[in-house]
Design a protein around this nucleic acid. Structure first.
Lengths: 146, 146
DNA sequence: ATCATAAATAGGAATATTCTTATTTATCGC
DNA sequence: GCGATAAATAAGAATATTCCTATTTATGAT
């Protein structure tokens, strides 16, 4: 999806289209894989040297809450990473090195929406991650089979 | 499950039964709900005033990786919380206030194990959380329906 | 174009989390 | 019990993340 589509979504909810915000979305669009807040900051700084880290975090979280970006929790050892666009999917994450493999499936269906509503919740998204050790990290003795 | 059962599990993998570790597991056992690292620290400090925060984090992550404790990612606004014992389950988390409601279900079955193995991964656990706004946070205008 | 207003930003302070290193300690074999 | 050894700890440094506040800015209405 192109940048302007995301900007439109944001405007519909009353969020503004600031240059920094555009740059952050662009950085996500150009990223090769899941990107950390640092990665995004480095990218955005090319255009806006004075951009604050807080702005990056604030926007990444906003995008995640809007369902525009997807947040991947790497569980310790590293901070969250973010991803934008593509078909909805989840990840198999290595808790040794942080590498993430895409899983082209999602178990969450409409029934969860009503389930959440029954609790008085307004659902905005979900997380699903499998955690383990990749082949490389098993070799290096970080696995659990010791 | 009693403390000693968990200690046994740890020893089987070569991890030691230190007094601090026991205290941390105990704190989790006595917690009324999901507890943050701070919560655990405060509890453990009653017995070990000099315990370091690092020790708390290290052990919580170890317990999570061992499948003994369950880590709940609250998505911004607050840090992760941890929970021990009980039947395996997941949570409906409010991204406004951090409150978590238990969901007595789990969509992950054995097929995911082979799926992970096909990628060369050794699976140790998974995360599944639904995110939204609780009724109280919707009222206070933090919801997305603006 | 100008104005009013809510949203966003930068900057710095406050927290939270992780990492590094030297020291201590639990565990195991004798 | 005693010693060897790997694991764990405390302490503090280094990062990461969030919070607070004053200022700037995008947007919609005039």
């Amino acid at each position: 999806m192109p940048l302007e589509k995301y900007i439109e979504k944001l405007k519909l909810k009353g969020y503004k289209a600031t240059p920094q915000r555009r740059a952050i979305i662009n950085a996500l669009l150009m990223a090769k894989g899941p990107a950390s807040a640092r990665d995004i900051l480095a990218e955005v700084q090319q255009e806006f040297p004075g951009v604050s880290l807080d702005t990056v975090y604030r926007n990444l979280h906003l995008l995640a809450q809007m369902g525009i970006a997807h947040q991947i929790d790497l569980r310790s050892c590293e901070s969250s990473k973010f991803e934008i666009g593509g078909v909805h999917h989840h990840h198999l994450v290595c808790i040794g090195c942080g590498q993430a493999v895409c899983l082209d499936c999602c178990l969450v269906d409409a029934s969860f929406m009503s389930r959440a509503e029954a609790q008085g919740y307004q659902l905005v998204g979900h997380a699903f991650e499998l955690y383990g050790y990749c082949s490389s990290c098993q070799v290096h003795g970080m696995g659990v089979s010791k």
